[in-house]
Design a protein around this nucleic acid. Structure first.
Lengths: 348, 348
DNA sequence: TTGAAAGCGATACCAA
DNA sequence: TTGGTATCGCTTTCAA
């Protein structure tokens, strides 16, 4: 009579005590053997018996109990507000993949926690419950001072947050979005453009990147007395793009930094579609620069000029985290997460 | 003399005992108050003192201790092999975002764990250490029987795995990739196409989807005695696409299901670029169908016909997980994660 | 070479 | 209405 539910969840999962009983040794011995501390302490025969018993029972150590006893957990929390994860794109997910693998190699469990969070403090509280060894934020609203203080009080050895400046006690992971705008602006200005539009996405959650990018373009323009920068609202829909395209002649712009390759393509396409009636040619009359260097930018015609982030290898960041966790006294510093450069192609 | 490291990690984070001392009550009382079990047990004044003390100390309960005591954790593990996360695209990340929010509302902590996956069993072991309330796999190699058995023995109340068929003890989350191929094939056949190429991505990690999709197209073609299906290898590079395009006249195909909008776009572009010399017009001579309904498919000209997954609302899946966790006896069943339909546009 | 036992933090039973 | 206390699973010190 087989159980229709298959192998059922045991009322009590096997513990190290169960392994000890089965192997005929004490729980201490089991612990030594299974953690590689058995050299010179436990006999060969006993070791073999313990390993066999663990195998047969399907024993898996209880991470919670272990970290409770050890006083420190091995979870590294990658925090990203749930509602912004989708828009981060392949750049973020690729980093994430490499980072988790690297952390695993160092003995940590990297975990992505999408915070459904009103305030940074509420998010920090939720994270602190897990007593993570480290917390990193890469996107969304950066941690503020109270949030950092809470995490540190909860024993988080390393707190790293993105953004231009970190609150006291937190390290900074710098992927300066201003730089993206700066590079795009400088590129366009070097190409002789002077009246630059900057797309501000209407989508929520992108404002955190969009603001600094705009500021970067402004900074680049400051060097040219005759340059002008104008923000443009755009949602990721064809209707919104058509509206913006229709208004284009009145704006008198000769270039646009479109926040992102997708927005860039959307806008460029709308300008092309409406171009005949408006007398605007893209990219002839208006240079278009995107960002993130997505595949689509290379496939569409004209090929899209794009600002690309060159991210620090995930292994390096993982190594940094490990260092900080092991030396919790390390004074906060700024760590570059990457830099930006322009991949010049046909659109501008 | 302020500490340059800012608020330092306390040697010992505040515990419920600390709160109890500060409030002048016992640990039990603290527990009652902070868990809403205080009604009719603890006096108003004591409650207020406890809450104040917790606030002042920045007390955050220790999830490990709690789940150790409770016997079950509140973590819901979303397992996705790290190396395939990047290729899942916005569809997956959007689902993830909604799912984590929904889980949070139900009192769970949804967490994405990119498995450094040698074998399903090794991955399962890593997950089991966290004693999650539930484990879901949505992509990559599905769990096999030993992996499921391990998780269940470790007390995981609900194990849900994707793929056509689940091992004993696991529920099935069905997003049948065969259906994608079936719909694409049926659409092309209905349009009069008979010699259908099916792109098999060279990128690792996609084979799990690609195989069933090909099988689906074959199934659709089985209804037409004169239909023919031919697999095509393609990597996500312009070189690979150019090679395939150059070989195109010899293949004699009048349609292609390109796995994905990106591959579709890449191939269509290559065919257009090489079309003049080859005498092949896309989409005239060859209909192109993509999948995932990415934005770029709508921006491209001609607009790309695409097979789109309509995913079950994440709240529903979260509710299902909650149900299964609370009724661990529930016999395994198949739960649809979504269905596919064709979004017909200009390319086929 | 092995075992007994303390204790990590939170909870819930039972007694007061 | 409250407090003492056993307990969850594991590690580690100390004693045998």
């Amino acid at each position: 009579m087989t159980d229709p539910a298959g192998p059922r969840a045991t009322p009590t999962p096997p513990t190290s005590a169960a392994v000890a009983r089965r192997a005929g040794v004490s729980r201490a011995t089991v612990s030594y053997v299974l953690n590689g501390q058995a050299a010179g302490r436990v006999g060969e025969r006993a070791q073999a018996r313990v390993r066999a018993a663990a195998e047969e029972l399907g024993y898996v150590p209880h991470a919670a109990a272990r970290s409770l006893r050890a006083g420190r957990g091995s979870i590294v929390l990658l925090a990203a507000p749930a509602d912004t994860v989708p828009v981060l794109g392949p750049l973020f997910t690729r980093f994430l993949a490499g980072f988790q693998t690297a952390l695993h190699a160092l003995g940590y469990t990297g975990v992505l926690h999408g915070a459904p969070t009103a305030s940074p403090l509420a998010a920090a509280r939720a994270w602190a419950e897990l007593r993570p060894a480290a917390v990193l934020t890469l996107h969304g609203p950066p941690l503020d001072a109270p949030a950092v203080a809470l995490l540190r009080r909860a024993g988080t050895a390393a707190v790293l947050t993105h953004g231009p400046v970190a609150p006291p006690g937190a390290h900074t992971l710098l992927l300066d979005q201003r730089e993206a705008g700066l590079r795009a602006g400088a590129h366009l200005l070097a190409g002789g453009r002077r009246r630059i539009g900057v797309v501000l996405p209407a989508e929520p959650g992108l404002a955190a990147c969009a603001g600094p990018r705009l500021a970067g373009v402004r900074a680049a323009a400051a060097a040219h007395p005759d340059a002008e920068v104008r923000p443009l609202d755009l949602a990721l829909t064809e209707e919104s793009a058509a509206r913006l395209a229709a208004a284009w002649p009145g704006l008198g712009l000769d270039a646009v930094f479109a926040y992102n390759d997708e927005y860039a393509m959307l806008l460029m396409r709308a300008l092309q579609d409406a171009g005949h009636t408006l007398g605007v040619r893209a990219p002839g009359d208006v240079a278009v620069v995107g960002a993130d260097d997505l595949l689509l930018g290379r496939l569409l015609r004209p090929r899209l000029t794009s600002v690309r982030a060159e991210i620090t290898p995930p292994e390096r960041i993982a190594g940094l985290v490990d260092e900080l966790v092991r030396g919790p006294g390390t004074p906060p510093a700024v760590h570059r997460l990457g830099t930006f450069r322009v991949e010049a192609r046909d659109s501008g």
